[in-house]
Each structure stands twice: as structure tokens, then as C-alpha cells.
């Protein structure tokens, strides 16, 4: 069972929610998929046991064979290859590793070489949380290959919580895709509402069932709850806007570890979500 925690907007408390869910479940897998800014390790404090490099493939031209016919440049939609007359150079960060240049080269002069784009880390946190995170190298244009590698570590049988990248871009879609359920975290501001709507649009398109958690809840901002009720969405939990929680977070402390009441809410939440997933699975065939 895979549950992804996402949010249209950054800074809503997505990582806090994902880490709290892992903390109350204890026997589960936590994956930090926010590979541009991975922060789950700060809250869960894992003991890292293994680090694995992740690669993408880049073309490499053998100039002994190349006759500068220009076919590779013609088929590259990303303009990653540039002809300098005496050599052809590759802009690594523009290459999407599609393999077209390699396939279409009439001289068979192009081969694949690996290029490191980041690392996956594996460890244990708390007592029994299997922890994974990914760290994308600075300047790498796409998080998708790293996310795919991270998701390849999902095992059946255990609940896996994925902390998604924020926003609604291709990396968020990659993180959420194939999940059984998605928890959307929002906050009581017009920003939170606006970005929640964007995230809901994405989940509807890719067809993932979801529920909503309002973090930094302030009853004064009624439009948010009105939107949720009017559309018949599941409001899973409201976490109050408290300075104490913000202070604890700033020190890397999870609120569920010292607020027994909130801990109970999260426990109930996990039971509720499990209940929602099973019938969905059957329907999905």
C-alpha cells in the first residue's frame, strides 16, 4: 500500500505530515521524494546504512567513427548537441537521455555512458521505519529519473509513505503516480486554497483517490472548508496554527512526539486511510 503526501504549495507542512504518519505507524517505509530539497531526514533522524549512486545515460561520440553528417544533431529535440565543425559537443544538463541520437547515427559512432545525477540513501529511523531519501545533484534539470529509482525500492506488504516534491510539476506527478492514496496538505490562507485546487486538478487527471489535511488551521479563513465541503472532498484532519508547533519544527522535532492528542489523531487517520484504500483497490480490479 502506497500513500503519497503532496501539496500544491511548498511550506504547508507536507514533510511534517508525512514524517508524523511514518512515526505513528512505526512499522513502515518512508521515502523522501522531495529530492530537490530533501528534509525528511531532519525530522526522522535516520541512521543511514547504504548510499547508492543513481545515473542517467548520456551519449558519447567516437570521433574516430564520426563523419559529421549531423544526423544526431537533427534528431535531438532538446538541442543538447552542438556542431563545432571539428567536434560535436554535448550539453549534459540539456540531454533527456532519450537515446535517439544513438539509434539514428548511421556510423554507429555513439555509445551510452553513465552520468551520476544524485544518490539514494537507505537506513532506519525511530525503531522500525525503513527510511529512503534521494538527493538530486545541484543543477540537474529533472528529478524524474531519481524518483523512478527511489520508487523501484517499494516493496509489497508494508505501508509506504512517499513525501512528494511540492507543486504540480512533472516530478510531483511522478511521485504520486501509481499511489493507492494521496494526502494533500494545505493551509488556511488564500495561497493554500489556490494551490490545493491545482493539486486536486492533477490528482483528478491521473485518477488517484485523495483526502485533505489542513495544517496551520485558522477558523477565520472559511473559504477553504467551504471549498472542501462544496466539492464533497474528504477533510481528514485539521492541525491548529500554533507557535509551539512552528518552534518545535524549527528544531527538527515532530509535533506527534510530544503532543499525545495529535498522535491519537494521526493514529486514527492512518486507520481511516487504510479503510479507504481497500475498497478502492477492489473496484480498480
Amino acid at each position: 500500500m502506497v500513500i503519497t503526501v503532496a501539496s500544491g504549495k511548498g511550506g504547508t507542512g507536507k514533510t511534517t505530515v508525512a514524517a508524523s504518519m511514518a512515526d505513528v505507524l512505526n512499522d513502515c517505509v518512508y521515502m523522501d521524494g522531495d529530492v530537490e530539497e530533501p528534509n525528511g531526514h531532519i525530522l526522522l533522524n535516520p541512521e543511514i546504512k547504504l548510499t547508492e549512486k543513481v545515473f542517467k545515460t548520456l551519449p558519447s561520440i567516437d570521433f574516430g567513427k564520426c563523419d559529421f553528417c549531423g544526423k544526431c544533431i537533427e534528431v535531438c529535440e532538446f538541442n543538447a548537441l552542438i556542431n563545432l565543425k571539428s567536434e560535436i559537443i554535448l550539453f549534459e544538463e540539456m540531454c533527456h537521455s532519450c537515446g535517439a541520437c544513438i539509434y539514428f547515427c548511421p556510423q554507429k559512432a555513439i555509445s551510452e555512458v553513465p552520468k551520476e545525477i544524485g544518490v539514494l540513501r537507505y537506513g532506519t529511523a525511530k525503531d522500525n521505519i525503513t527510511f529512503f531519501d534521494g538527493i538530486l545533484r545541484i543543477g540537474e534539470p529533472s528529478a524524474v529519473p531519481l524518483l523512478k529509482r527511489l520508487k523501484s525500492k517499494i516493496e509489497n506488504g508494508k505501508i509506504t509513505i512517499i513525501d512528494s516534491p511540492p507543486g504540480t510539476s512533472c516530478s510531483m506527478v511522478e511521485a504520486v503516480k501509481d499511489s493507492d492514496y494521496c494526502v494533500l496538505v494545505t493551509e488556511s490562507t488564500p495561497f493554500g486554497l489556490n494551490d490545493l485546487k491545482l493539486a486536486v486538478d492533477v490528482l483528478k487527471i491521473i485518477g488517484i483517490p485523495f483526502g485533505i489535511i489542513i495544517n496551520k488551521y485558522q477558523p477565520e479563513f472559511r473559504q477553504l472548508e467551504e471549498y472542501i465541503t462544496a466539492n464533497g472532498f474528504d477533510l481528514l484532519l485539521k492541525i491548529p496554527f500554533e507557535r509551539e508547533i512552528a518552534e518545535a519544527y524549527s528544531k527538527g522535532i515532530l509535533p506527534v512526539t510530544y503532543k499525545p492528542e495529535l498522535r491519537n489523531h494521526f493514529k486514527k487517520l492512518m486507520t481511516e486511510i487504510s479503510g479507504k484504500i481497500k475498497p478502492e483497490k477492489v473496484n480498480a480490479g
Partner: peptide, 27 residues
Amino acid sequence: SVCSFDAINNFDVDPISCEGCGFCFRI
């Protein structure tokens, strides 16, 4: 078989996964 982005399934292109490399179009 040539799509590096798992964007083609059952002879249909998933526009969200398609990165626009044009490999399938050319081949």
C-alpha cells in the same frame, strides 16, 4: 520499446509522461 519515459502504453501516448523527444515519431 524505444520510449525512455514509459509514456506509451497500449499504443497510446500519455501526454503527462511524454517529454517530447520525438524518437517514436521518427522510428
